[in-house]
C-alpha cells in the first residue's frame, strides 16, 4: 500500500511545478496506472516516489509510514524497471540479473526460471551488450522483480516487445499483483493500461485530470451504442443503434436478424478517447 497526498514538485529554477497537487493511493495487490503524454510529469512523479528526487510538498506513505522515515528497508522492498535499459554490457544476461542480489537480505526467484519464462534462456550467458532492444527490455523487467519486491515500479514495460512476449510480461505483472505486489505502472500505452490496471490516473501538465477504473472511465465518457455494417443489394450501409432507449434496442434486434451483416462495432470509448475528452489533447 502506497499513498500519495498533495504531492507537488518543482525542478530547480522551473517557472511552474512539474507535478501539481497529486493524490492517490494504490492498495496492496493493485495495479495503478499513471498515464499521460510525454512531458506530463510521470517520470518525475515516479522519481519522487522512489526517493530519487526530494519530497518538497505533500506526503508519501508506504505501509502507513512516511517515506522519509524509511531507510534502506524501503529499497529492499522496491523493484524498479527503467524505461531505457541500463545493463552492464560486458556481463551476461544471467550476471546482470543476479549481480545486485547480494545486496538484498531476502529470498529471491530462480534466475534460470525467470530467464526461461521470457525466452532468454538460450541467451543467458551471452553478454547483455549483444542483446537486442527487446531482450534488454525483458532483462531489465526481470531484474526489477527477481528479489521479490512488494512494490514494483514499471516504466513502459512492454514497449518494443512483440505481441507474444508482451503478453507474457503482462501475465507476469498480473501474477505478481495477484500474489500481493503493488504495481505502479507508467505508460503511454492505453491498451496496456486498460488490460492491466485496476485504477488509472490521467496526468496532464502535472496534475491528475481523471482517476478511476478503466471500465468506469470508458462508461462515463463513451457512447453506449453499436454500429452495424450491412450489405444490402450489393451496397454497404452503416447504421448506429443506441443501447439506452428500448426502441433503439428493438431496432438493433431487428437489424441483427436481417441478412447481409458484415461487421458489428461497439462504440464504447477507448481509454485513448477518454483521455482526449478529459484533457483536450492527444497522447504522443
Amino acid at each position: 500500500m502506497i499513498e500519495v497526498e498533495g504531492l507537488t514538485f518543482s525542478y530547480h529554477g522551473a517557472a511552474r511545478a512539474t507535478v501539481q497537487d497529486v493524490s492517490f493511493s494504490a492498495p496492496k495487490g493493485s495495479i495503478f496506472g499513471v498515464l499521460g503524454p510525454s512531458g506530463a510529469g510521470k517520470s518525475t512523479l515516479q522519481k519522487v516516489m522512489i526517493k530519487l528526487l526530494p519530497l518538497q510538498v505533500g506526503a508519501i506513505r508506504y505501509g502507513g509510514r512516511p517515506l522519509a522515515a524509511l531507510g534502506r528497508e524501503f529499497f529492499a522492498d522496491v523493484g524498479v524497471s527503467f524505461e531505457q535499459p541500463n545493463l552492464f554490457p560486458r556481463l551476461s544476461g544471467r550476471e546482470n540479473l543476479t549481480c545486485l542480489l547480494g545486496l538484498y537480505d531476502r529470498e529471491h526467484d530462480d534466475p534460470a526460471a525467470l530467464l526461461a519464462a521470457l525466452g532468454l534462456g538460450a541467451a543467458a550467458d551471452q553478454p547483455a551488450g549483444e542483446y537486442s532492444k527487446g531482450m534488454k527490455q525483458r532483462l531489465v523487467f526481470l531484474r526489477s522483480l527477481i528479489h521479490r519486491p512488494s512494490l514494483l515500479f514499471l516504466d513502459e514495460p512492454t514497449s518494443g516487445l512483440d505481441p507474444a512476449t508482451a503478453e507474457l510480461v503482462k501475465q507476469m505483472i498480473r501474477d505478481r499483483a495477484a500474489s500481493g505486489v503493488t504495481v505502479i505502472l507508467t505508460t503511454h500505452d492505453m491498451t496496456l493500461a486498460d488490460q492491466l490496471c485496476d485504477t488509472v490516473a490521467f496526468l496532464h501538465d502535472g496534475s491528475i485530470a481523471a482517476m478511476a477504473s478503466p471500465r468506469a472511465l470508458k462508461l462515463r465518457f463513451g457512447e453506449r451504442a453499436v454500429r452495424v455494417e450491412r450489405r444490402i443489394d450489393g451496397r454497404l450501409t452503416q447504421e448506429v443503434f443506441g443501447l439506452e432507449a428500448p426502441e433503439e434496442q428493438a431496432r438493433l434486434a431487428e437489424a441483427l436478424r436481417s441478412p447481409g451483416i458484415e461487421t458489428l462495432h461497439s462504440l464504447e470509448a477507448t481509454l485513448e478517447q477518454v483521455f482526449l475528452k478529459v484533457t483536450g489533447r492527444a497522447l504522443t
Partner: peptide, 16 residues
C-alpha cells in the same frame, strides 16, 4: 551506462 540508477534503487548505499 545508467547502471548507477539500478544500484541507487537497491539497498546498497553510497558508503558500500
Amino acid at each position: 551506462l545508467r547502471t548507477l540508477a539500478a544500484y541507487r534503487v537497491s539497498p546498497g548505499g553510497a558508503g558500500l
